[in-house]
Design a protein around this nucleic acid. Structure first.
Lengths: 109, 109
DNA sequence: TACATTAATTACAAAAAGTAACTACCTTCT
DNA sequence: AGAAGGTAGTTACTTTTTGTAATTAATGTA
């Protein structure tokens, strides 16, 4: 009978929210604008907006508004967000070593 | 404009499937039976069954049947599954350092 | 005034998750 | 034989979350 660590459970709840991993990996590549992320990732504006709002509330993503024309809004990782880099790296490492060519086209059903 | 690594995308799709992280972390603690996992984790039998089936198909979980009375079915991690340990460890590490006390009771909304 | 641009938000149909009750398969007990 | 009990699921049904496309808000330009 394992006891579940509440901090781990919270972190996992965050990371296992759909698209969050891809958003983090995109932002680890540097500051991004909304429309950039929208074209980088296979995610719709509705969910990208939801997720960024959630990640901002969790203190993982920072949002900066530049009142230019047209308005520019930049998203970047806070220190707390950047601290997730090793997690993303380990996932990449596992993917490189264990995801086979044939698996690439299959969804998880 | 970042390009998305398909292997990473596949791995992330897997890990970001709800409950998969908790199931992996439970199984990293050793072989488990269905009912054990059901009481360890805040997940219903329906979804536990779905996820174990999916993880078995992905070659991450092994399923062993012992025809005793009552029937005993054991779940454990394959090598591919065990290779996810560093990922889980990094998540635990981030959780220890960055998940605050107040956050523990809040859901990600 | 009409239009362009970015960053969202709304409305609605489709898919996935949550819950609880039920089934299948065996074994033991009476 | 028939009823009861244990494990591992499955089914039926409701609620929540996603995906898609159209719409809005704020601002500046022609």
């Amino acid at each position: 009978m394992e006891k579940l660590c509440p901090r781990f459970e919270k972190a996992m709840g965050l990371l296992s929210t759909r698209w969050v991993g891809l958003i983090l990996s995109d932002l680890l590549g540097g500051t991004k604008r909304f429309s950039e992320m929208e074209s980088d990732l296979p995610i719709s504006g509705r969910l990208l907006s939801d997720r960024l709002k959630m990640l901002e509330k969790e203190g993982i993503v920072k949002r900066n508004i530049y009142s230019e024309f047209p308005v520019r809004i930049e998203y970047s990782l806070s220190d707390k967000g950047k601290a997730l880099e090793p997690v993303i790296q380990e996932i990449q490492c596992w993917a490189d070593n264990h995801v086979t060519e044939e698996e690439l086209n299959t969804e998880c059903e």
